[in-house]
Design a protein around this nucleic acid. Structure first.
Lengths: 218, 218
DNA sequence: TTCTGTGAATTGTTTCACAGCC
DNA sequence: GGCTGTGAAACAATTCACAGAA
């Protein structure tokens, strides 16, 4: 049923299901079981069914799910059936990669501006969008109704950029800078920490095979 | 105490604590309470103390933690006191950004090779490392004892790259391509999904403020 | 007294197993 | 018969609240 609040763990997996459904559609598969979709999404089928049950009852017992229909329902639930204008601040290699990344300019998202403090790069075109001055942030946010800001600056600039975003009215921030941002309660920050992920892998790798130079793991 | 297995949620936060400790050291702060460190890391102090209690008893009651000492203990626990040679495959904008990213070439990690299938880019220097042919993967892995591979290719190439990595002996993979990888049980894959993060933000943003064009949220 | 370390209580998530519908 | 949707059970993570060390 829709009225209930969807668990956070489920919300985090909805984008994965959406991608799996898209790839099934690419293969002209119009219908699938929870088992098939779960495999495509890399989870087990019980979890998938429980997750979907939080959105509503969109499958058919004994049959499975209609791929197109389920995709629409999940899209709607996430909010991708509406338009989300996004600004990216910090157009180094990472900002460049993000601007070109398909997930950032499709399916509900639209990059409306690329901002950088470095004057020498202003006017340069990246992914069909000119780099503009960071000072234009407020005006751009008002003009396009931007609700989501992406920070791809060095860590040293991130808090100041974030403060400006909030002053401009942005309340959802995706932070790629390796630093904790402090924000008011009503602002939502998600942090993508590239080096944390490497470190987590290293931790597990270390447990798997006791390494030559390290202590012996019990 | 160390012998017990550390909870996954705790492992995922250790890198955050490590960064917080580094930034305290940068400010010449040599000692801190759980409250201060928790604030710097963006968590609450009860969680921080519980997390640290899984590693051992490295604080002093009534006083707090020695920043340098705790940093060393966490580093050791994660495995950053040993050397982790890394290969990055796919040197587009994202691979470029990763190669230049400080977290990828410091604190235990060392990028030993950048590989790309595009011949025209071979020999090009990125972050002080030449781009080499993907076919050299096996040899490089053997030569340097690479245990961690990073995939920054388009989704269409990711599974093939992953298969080659596994054939070469890599058992920990960090995947930036937006696709699920299928791997044997003993291989550890972590997926960093840039567009999922945006979608999760959109979901919450949608709940915050019922938008003009969408359905009314109850 | 101050602040850590930790059992106990709470809250959240995953898995199980099967009732109910196609 | 086959497969979804879901209570109930098992497991994991977080928060509480305080005993105990410095």
């Amino acid at each position: 049923m829709s009225p209930t609040r969807i668990p956070e763990a489920t919300v985090a997996r909805l984008p994965v299901y959406l991608r799996a459904l898209n790839s099934l559609l690419d293969s002209d598969i119009r219908s699938c079981s929870s088992e098939e979709l779960a495999t495509a999404a890399g989870v087990n089928s019980a979890k998938l069914r429980k997750d979907l049950s939080h959105l509503g009852s969109y499958g058919t017992r004994g049959v499975g799910y209609d791929v197109e229909y389920l995709r629409y329902q999940i899209s709607r639930e996430i909010g991708l059936t509406q338009d989300w204008p996004v600004v990216i601040v910090g157009i180094g290699n990472l900002g460049h990669a993000l601007a070109n990344f398909s997930g950032f300019s499709s399916r509900g998202f639209r990059t409306v501006a690329l901002l950088d403090a470095d004057e020498s790069r202003h006017g340069e075109m990246v992914a069909g969008c000119p780099i503009r001055d960071f000072g234009e942030l407020g005006q751009i946010v008002r003009e396009h109704g931007v609700a989501i800001g992406v920070i791809a600056t060095p860590a040293s600039a991130a808090q100041a950029v974030c403060d400006q975003m909030i002053a401009a009215g942005i309340r959802s921030v995706l932070n790629f800078a390796p630093t904790v941002l402090s924000v008011p309660e009503d602002v939502d920050v998600r942090m993508v920490d590239l080096s944390s992920e490497l470190q987590i892998l290293a931790y597990h790798e270390q447990r798997k095979a006791p390494h030559v130079d390290g202590e012996v793991v019990a």
